[in-house]
Simulated assay, not measured.
Amino acid sequence: MGTTEKRGAVVWERAAFWLVLIFIAAGTGYMFFMDKNTKVFMGFMTLTLMAAISIGQKYMKLPSLFVCILYGFILMAVGFGTFGGMYRIPHFDDALHIFSGIFLGYGSWILLKYLTGKEWSSRLPNSFIVLYIFCFSLAGAGVWELLEFAGDKLFHFTAQGRDPDDTMFDMIDGMIGGAIAAIFISKRKSKQQSSSQ
């Protein structure tokens, strides 16, 4: 990626940050006036998370596309889902968890390249990469469900409800998203290898 492209990506990243930040801040303020304290608390937690991501990005230098996807996920989950009431729409939660599986799969690929080095990671067989991304996404979906469980128990959220099927379907959705990411990344890696030869 050239310098101009990098600058353009950073501009999009900052625009996404401010767009989501303003939306979540407005939603938090609205929930405050509606006296919905649990959602106000969730809003403040989300704003704190976004500030931490923005500060951390100055040191980690993650790909701007990945960070924009993260901000998009926050907007969908908290802005549209929690504040906008879209969790009442059938299968909105399924779409969100599939999206999170794709997001986790992409994140796992970035992590693998960071841990092994870009050159060495490009030599890994596609079968290993597919298995690694798939397992990482499934594990991430499990961790997410543990966080939802902790939030429900400690802060009286209602992320999991009372139906254990919801947890299992969420993990299946995350697994599907991880499989999509794994296939896409492995095919893109193969294409890049063939074009460089």
Rank of each mutant, 00 (worst) to 15 (best):
T28H: 05
L62V: 07
K113L: 08
N126R: 03
L70H: 09
V40N: 04
H156Q: 11
S122C: 06
E145S: 05
E148A: 01
Q160W: 14
K153M: 00
M50R: 02
F73W: 03
W120G: 02
A26V: 14
S127F: 15
A159H: 12
D166H: 12
R162C: 05
A139T: 14
Y106R: 03
I102Q: 04
L131T: 05
R162F: 04
A26N: 05
G105K: 03
L96E: 02
T38K: 12
L147N: 02
L49R: 15
G72C: 07
R88S: 04
H156Y: 12
F66W: 12
S64K: 13
F99L: 05
S64T: 04
K39Q: 14
I74T: 06
K39R: 13
I53S: 10
L146D: 01
F149V: 00
F134E: 01
S137M: 12
L49G: 14
E148S: 04
E145T: 06
L70G: 15
F134W: 04
A139H: 11
M31D: 03
S127V: 13
F157C: 00
D93C: 10
G140R: 13
F41I: 11
M42E: 02
F32C: 01
I53F: 04
L47P: 04
L96V: 03
L75G: 04
L75D: 07
I53T: 01
Y59G: 06
M76V: 10
L111C: 05
T48V: 10
G79D: 14
F149S: 00
I133S: 00
C68D: 10
C135R: 09
W109F: 11
S54M: 12
A95T: 15
I129Q: 03
F32D: 01
V67Q: 13
G142P: 09
V143I: 12
I129Y: 02
H156L: 15
E148V: 02
K113E: 15
A159L: 15
D35L: 11
L147V: 00
F149T: 01
G72W: 11
E148Y: 08
Y106P: 08
G105S: 10
S137H: 14
G56L: 13
L65G: 11
F149L: 07
G27D: 13
F33Y: 10
L75C: 06
A139Y: 13
L111G: 02
F103D: 08
L65Y: 12
P63Y: 08
L49P: 12
L47E: 09
V67R: 08
G79Y: 10
S54Q: 14
F99R: 06
R162K: 02
G29V: 07
F136R: 01
M45A: 03
D35Y: 11
T116D: 12
G140N: 09
I110M: 01
G85N: 10
Y106H: 06
Y114I: 03
L138E: 00
P164Y: 08
I74D: 05
G43E: 15
D94W: 14
A77F: 14
K58S: 14
I53E: 02
M50P: 01
G79K: 07
W120N: 04
G27E: 15
L75V: 14
